[in-house]
Amino acid sequence: MAKEIMRRTASDNEYLHKDFHASMNIGLEFLRKNYGKEGVIDYLKTFTKKYHAPLTEGLKKEGLKVLKDYFQKIYEAEKAPCTIEYEEDCMIVKIDECPALKHLREMNVAPSPYYEYTTLTVYETVCEGTPFAFECVEYDRITGKSILKFYRRDKI
C-alpha cells in the first residue's frame, strides 16, 4: 500500500475555520461554570483591552471609520452580510444573522447563555476611553440578529 502525502502552503487555502466558534463557545462555558457571569465578562474585557488595543487607539485618532473598516473586514471574512449606515458621529451596524451562532446551530451545539457578551462587552470595551459610546439597540439571542449603534458621546 503506497504512502499518501499532502503538501500545502498557506497561500493554497483561505483562512476560515468556522469550528473555532465552537471552541470559543466551550471557552465561554468553561468560564461560566468556573467563575460565573463575572468571569465571562472579566475575561472578555481583558481580551478586548489587549487584542483590540489598536482598534481603540484608531477610534481615538481617526474616529468611527476604523470601526467601519473593522466590521466590513470580519463580516466579509465570515461571508456574512452586514449593513453599515455610516456618518462621522454615528454608525449603525445591522446584522441579519450572527455567523457564529449560525455555525453553532449547524453543529448542533447549544450557545452559551452568555454568548451575547461577545458582542456587548467586547464593543463596550473597545469604546472605553474614546470619544465614542456603544449601544446595543437590538439583539436576538437565537439568531444573533442585531442592531449596534456607535456614536459620539458629546453628541447625545
Binding site: H17, Y51, E78, A100, V122
Partner: peptide, 10 residues
C-alpha cells in the same frame, strides 16, 4: 461577535 479569524488570540 468574536470572529473565528480572531479566535487564536482569544
Amino acid at each position: 461577535m468574536i470572529s473565528c479569524t480572531e479566535f487564536i488570540p482569544a
